[in-house]
Write a protein that binds this DNA or RNA. Structure first.
Lengths: 123, 123
DNA sequence: CAGTATCCGGTTTGATACTG
DNA sequence: CAGTATCAAACCGGATACTG
């Protein structure tokens, strides 16, 4: 029902990268991943290109502790685990949207986001 | 004209700490420090309790590169340097305010901010 | 006053291999 | 599939001393 997550979901100009970050490197992106409904571990790894499973696990557990999402393990084989936003986690999307809107509006003034990756400050 | 910065400006319940942070540890706080007008290096050190001068310098230079503030050195003795928000930097205060409002509204659900947890780093 | 210059330690992030 | 277990590297951030 919910569309699969795009591998390009967090490309620089996607409108999901915030200049204001949530806590660690991945939390904000994960919140965005869960916006449209519960997701599985492997599903999350797709747009979070290159994240090590260890790191993803740590981040998810921390977010669970902080009440931003829930972890539901179904007793099946192969195993299935779903992560879903709590009300608290979902409520964070509003300020995140504001920050994203700000970024879009000022994209031309944000070299870190709009310019070519690393022009290497020479001379 | 602008009131001096309070040393308690960034106490946990001051309404300035955001659950959504700007980049590094100090940038968001510095933006807030400059809200009411230009500030000097030493002036900034007061509310940013315990920040090492090296770190403060690095942060300020990075923010200058990113166009969030300007650095103006006056050729006097003793030296005087003033940091001031750019229009871009000032515009960031709006999304920051939204995030702060969100935090205040959900303070009871944010153990990291509301709980006794951290035994105050004083005494 | 407004910084530099060093040195250093911990946390965060990652690569890789393996498992119930 | 959904993770663990290790090991290693990078990355801040900080302490301290010194200077034009």
């Amino acid at each position: 029902m919910t569309a699969p997550l795009s591998a390009d979901m967090f490309d620089p100009h996607c409108g999901h990268r915030m200049p204001i970050r949530v806590g660690d490197k991945w939390s904000g992106l994960i919140l965005r991943c869960l916006e449209d409904g519960p997701r599985r571990f492997t599903e999350l790894k797709v747009p979070l290109k290159g994240v090590a499973p260890k790191v993803l696990t740590e981040t998810l557990r921390a977010m669970e502790r902080d009440g931003w999402l829930t972890r539901t393990a179904y007793d099946e084989n192969p195993p299935r685990v779903e992560y879903a936003l709590t009300e608290l986690g979902r409520s964070l999307l509003a300020p995140m949207d504001v920050a994203c809107a700000w970024a879009r509006e000022h994209l031309d003034q944000l070299p870190r986001l709009s310019g070519p990756a690393r022009p290497a400050p020479d001379h």
